[in-house]
């Protein structure tokens, strides 16, 4: 009981500490005093620039992307009643990345900056809707994950096709950024563009949280105790689509945080999907901030991609969670 009560305060503290750490560390180490001075507008111009234009936006971007993916993962797991569901595994992130690439590639973004998050969100919504429709027909989660793999492969193939048919010199590096995920060089303006969608998506998911608890009993009993199943499905699809799409429009496709964070949180919240949403969001946010600090301080010749680091930690965790499951769960 005690660990349950301190879970949220600990996670909130960890969130603030990790973002603060992200401001301290970097190619030019700034002391605690200089960072605090910059926060309160007392520092010299170059320090302020480093904190407000480079490190803080980057850390906040990593945090909100993690939070959106963590919430989406926890909510999709509740809806599909399976701990292996996550926007990455189900192909939602890949389809969102495809949407974003499309918008960049055909120059829609030049017409209107909002086109970037909107295209990513459309990609995410299409994928989430396909998964949710398939989930009505099949009870097998293996099938859903296979569909997710199919969606991911398809999105990857279309992205390769776009590379081949590039009408304008679209750089390979940009494409790789979308496929692998990165929060390098993000500004607060980028965040403001995608932020509203992300916040609305996460809020929708929080509205559905009691229904996620009800689904613990299976769909038939859940509607028996008074859940409006159709509304629940639509809202989770919409919420996860908005949140994941917006996250991808900020950072590209970053996988596995949506699985790992809820998995760690669940035992502390009595395995209730509703109570796992907020802690999953915070923990996934902290994860990505820490992973991004790792990306920045690791002495590699060219900077690692955040999505690669997340997958290096997350993919083995995914395999481990899958192996823990008993056959009876299918």
């Amino acid at each position: 009981m005690k660990t349950k009560r301190i879970l949220l305060p600990v996670l909130i503290l960890a969130s603030m500490l990790s973002i603060f750490m992200a401001c301290l560390l970097g190619s030019t180490p700034l002391g605690m005093g200089r960072v605090l001075a910059a926060f309160f507008g007392q520092a010299d111009a170059s320090d302020s620039l480093v904190i407000w234009q480079i490190r803080l936006p980057r850390a906040v971007a990593a945090f909100v992307v993690g939070a959106a993916l963590g919430t989406s993962g926890a909510a999709l797991q509740g809806l599909l009643r399976n701990p292996l569901a996550d926007p990455g595994v189900l192909g939602v992130s890949a389809c969102a990345a495809l949407g974003a690439t499309f918008a960049l590639y055909y120059g829609f973004v030049g017409l209107n900056a909002w086109m970037l998050p909107i295209s990513a969100i459309i990609g995410a919504l299409v994928a989430t809707a396909i998964i949710a429709l398939a989930a009505i027909k099949t009870r097998s989660v293996v099938t859903l994950i296979l569909i997710g793999i199919g969606l991911s492969s398809f999105a990857g193939a279309v992205m390769s096709l776009l590379m081949n048919l590039a009408p304008n010199p679209f750089s390979l590096a940009d494409m790789i950024n979308w496929m692998l995920g990165s929060v390098a060089n993000r500004s607060f303006n980028d965040l403001l563009l995608s932020g509203p969608f992300l916040v609305v998506g996460v809020l929708i998911l929080f509205v559905t949280r009691r229904g996620l608890s009800a689904l613990t009993l299976g769909e038939e009993a859940a509607s028996g105790i008074g859940l409006n199943l159709q509304r629940q499905r639509i809202l989770v699809v919409l919420g996860a689509g908005l949140a994941t799409g917006a996250a991808v429009s900020i950072a590209g496709a970053i996988g596995f945080v949506g699985i790992v964070a809820p998995h760690i949180v669940r035992p502390f919240v009595g395995h209730d999907p509703a109570r796992s949403l907020l802690p999953s969001a915070l923990l996934a946010g902290v994860f990505l901030v820490l992973a991004d600090i790792g990306v920045r301080v690791l002495p590699t010749s060219s900077e690692l991609k955040l999505g690669v680091v997340a997958a290096l930690i997350g993919a083995p965790a995914f395999v481990w969670i899958a192996m823990q499951r008993r056959a009876s769960h299918d």
Binding site: R81, N82, T216, L217, G218, E220, A221, G224, I225, H271
Partner: peptide, 10 residues
């Protein structure tokens, strides 16, 4: 209502 199949997901 207590349905026939009573799965518990978690």
């Amino acid at each position: 209502y207590l349905p026939q199949s009573r799965p518990l997901a978690w």
